[in-house]
């Protein structure tokens, strides 16, 4: 890159920019990123792109195979399900539901997790020790169990599973944040700002958070893939989104009844979940590698 340099100063891109540069150099990560953008835009633009509404039933076109099959029809590109609903439109609306609930889950648990994790990391002594050990133990309780309990108390529904998965993901964010914060608290730059009279909140906001943010993005992508798999798993077990709501896991469960006649009804929703999670995992891996490349430079 040629740039005019009067004072022979080197070009120092901002940290985020450096990460983006090394992320961009990796082709696999970029393909994952493009796949991710495609999936997200499919989900976001569902009302514009979807051929029909996800709940319209075409009684004259039940269990139609996808259009490339000889028995298929071009009107229903990915075929129809047992109630004659267009699978493509349902898939797009379903990924909208699944993706947005996963995003909500991750954002809430990130917010709560970082707050509690910072407190736990800054605390010293017995309070911190009790909190940490209890959290470590609670982290081990499986999501499915928490979800079953919450569904037992409040009944089935997408919203309840969102709460359940949020509860299950919070400890992970707390764990990561707390480890990082308690590690950083011994560093000189924190001590310097303490000597400057910074309050704990100022230390957090000006000194810790900028360092923390990238790690949180990486952890967030990991949590996002877990959240998508969990939401669809609960939908699949009939604990999450209920029948008329299109949701990827619930669609899979609906397709299960006639899976032997219409395998595409379980293959396609599963493929969508898989592509979402794969894209997020590849992007997460690429980000992690880029961050490692930058910090070890």
């Amino acid at each position: 890159m040629s740039r005019f340099s009067l004072y022979e100063e080197e070009f120092h891109p901002a940290p985020w920019r450096q990460t983006w540069h090394s992320f961009k150099e990796d082709h696999v990560s970029m393909i994952g990123f493009i796949l991710f953008l495609t999936m997200v835009s499919l989900a976001l633009l569902a009302p514009l792109l979807a051929p029909t509404s996800p709940s319209v039933q075409n009684t004259d076109a039940l269990i139609l195979p996808p259009s490339w099959d000889t028995a298929g029809s071009i009107n229903f590109i990915l075929g129809t399900d047992a109630l004659g609903r267009d699978v493509l439109s349902r898939l797009m609306y379903a990924s909208r539901v699944t993706f947005s609930s996963a995003l909500t889950v991750v954002l809430i648990s990130l917010l709560v997790g970082v707050t509690v994790g910072t407190l736990a990391g800054m605390l010293r002594g017995i309070r911190s020790s009790v909190l940490n050990h209890l959290l470590d133990a609670l982290m081990a309780i499986p999501t499915l169990l928490i979800a079953i309990i919450i569904v037992g108390i409040f009944g089935v529904g997408l919203l309840n599973t969102i709460w359940a998965i949020t509860l299950a993901l919070i400890p992970q964010f707390i764990h990561v944040t707390r480890n990082y914060v308690s590690e950083q608290m011994d560093n000189d730059y924190i001590r310097a700002s303490k000597l400057d009279g910074a309050t704990p909140f100022q230390i957090f906001y000006y000194s810790l958070l900028p360092n923390l943010s990238e790690m949180l993005v990486v952890q967030g992508t990991l949590a996002m893939s877990i959240a998508i798999i969990d939401i669809s798993a609960l939908g699949f077990l009939n604990l999450g989104a209920q029948s008329p709501t299109p949701e990827l896991g619930a669609m899979l469960a609906e397709g299960l009844d006639i899976a032997y006649i219409t395998p595409w009804n379980i293959i396609l929703p599963g493929l969508f979940i898989f592509l979402f999670v794969l894209a997020i995992n590849i992007v997460g891996d690429g980000l992690r590698a880029a961050l490692r490349a930058r910090t070890s430079r």
Partner: peptide, 14 residues
Amino acid sequence: IIQYSTPVFWSGLA
């Protein structure tokens, strides 16, 4: 990474 991204209920069904 492909195996890790596959939902377990889907691979079980497959």
